[in-house]
Each structure stands twice: as C-alpha cells, then as structure tokens.
Design a protein around this nucleic acid. Structure first.
Lengths: 109, 109
DNA sequence: TTCATCTGTCACTTTATGGTGACACAAGCG
DNA sequence: CGCTTGTGTCACCATAAAGTGACAGATGAA
C-alpha cells in the first residue's frame, strides 16, 4: 500500500466547525440541509464548503438518494492519524493503553 | 479542572512544518538555532513563528540558559486531543486497541 | 405542467496565515 | 572595550482560507 498523505486530514480537523460536523455525524448520518440548520451562524454555502473539505480528507462519505444527499462519518482517516502520529508521540510516555497492550503481548523488549 | 480549549492545539498540528518540529523534538530538546537549520527552505523568522504557535498551544516548552533557548516537546496536549477527541471517535469502531482492552478487562458491557 | 425543495456552483470580499528582511538586544569571548 | 553569536521583534507581502449572495439544476409533489 502506498503511504497516504495525512495533510488534508490534519487540515480538515483544524477547524472547530468541521470537528463539530464530525461530532454530529458520529450520532448518525445526516442529509446536508439538516446539517446546515445546526449552524445558524453560517450560511448554507459556508457549511457546504466545510463538507467539501471533509470529503476531500476522506472523513465524510456521501450517498445520494434522489435529491437528498446523505453524509456519513468515516473514522478510517482518524484512525490513520492516531496510528501514524498520535500513538507514535504518546508511546514514549507509556500511556495506560500501550502499557496494557505491551503487558498482554508479553513485553517483547 | 476547567475544560481547556483544544482549538490552539489542533491549529498548531495542522501545519506539516510544525509537526516536523515536534518530530524532531521527540528525539530530544533542541535550541532554536539548531532547529532553524533543519529547515533550509525557511528563514529563521519563519521557523520562530511556528515555534510561537507551538508554544501557545502548549506543545512546546521553553527553558532559557544564558543567550540560548532550549525547546522541549510537551506531549500533554497531544494526550488531551487523543483522550478527548480521537478516542471518542474511534471507540464505536472497536479498534484493535480498544477491543484488546475490553477483552483484557473482562468485557463490562 | 407548475411549483417548492434540496443541492450544486460560481464570483466575490474579507480575514487569517505563512513567509521574509531589517533592526534591536543581550550574552559570551577576545 | 569591540565583536560574534543566539534570540526577539517589527512592518510588510503574498497567498490561502472562511464566509457570503446570486444563480442554476434536478427531484418530488400537487
């Protein structure tokens, strides 16, 4: 497998509005219009631009049904960031999770 | 404890250069000048602006020694992001780590 | 068909961000 | 004292990004 670039994912996650969108989608898929009304301080076009960025990052999956568009959360990119960056930096600290993992695996080093 | 805002942390992590800085500091503390030469495509001022942003996010700790400044990596904000955001989103998927954890703990639910 | 609804797209403005050069300053060293 | 070294700071520029209104298209209902 080729090494995917994490930059678009980081960029997408940088914005608080986009993270709110992901939080909403974590509750279940939503159609665009219903997602827009969750952000009264923004216009529809503004929200849709955020959705585009999330989609480009692979965090948002889209399924069309008639004239409605359903937006799904995809956690795979989050997992990629976690495994290829966050975990790497937290490893030296020996967090509870990694310590537990090493304990179970029978400490190889 | 009051709920700290994660926004500056996300913003700091959004830039690839800043993530490279953190990668370097993960190897050990460095003084600013030595950090600057690691980025030949940037000028000193540019690197220092990145350091400022990292410092504001709490990802970078500074200790002065005479006319030299030593930059330290601080993983606590990364841990905060992991615990208060990443883990929350990865939980429903039951990643290998969490599945393992639940297995060991004797599946409470 | 006619109309309302949901979505897509375009041009545009404004603000934030990344990046640079110039200057200033204090700490060491001769 | 002078001089170099390592930082700090300021004004400035170019570009990216957030945000908006207007218009167009396609679907579904009456």
């Amino acid at each position: 497998m080729k090494t995917k670039n994490l930059d678009p994912i980081w960029r997408a996650l940088a914005d608080p509005t986009r993270r709110s969108v992901l939080d909403l989608l974590a509750l279940g898929p939503m159609q665009t219009g219903h997602l827009v009304v969750q952000f009264p301080e923004l216009c529809r076009t503004g929200v849709m631009k955020h959705l585009d960025i999330l989609q480009d990052a692979g965090l948002l999956l889209v399924r069309r049904d008639g004239r409605q568009r359903w937006n799904y959360l995809n956690v795979v990119p989050i997992q990629a960031i976690h495994e290829r960056w966050v975990a790497k930096h937290l490893q030296p600290t020996a967090s509870s999770m990694t310590r537990l993992k090493q304990h179970v695996e029978g400490k190889k080093s």
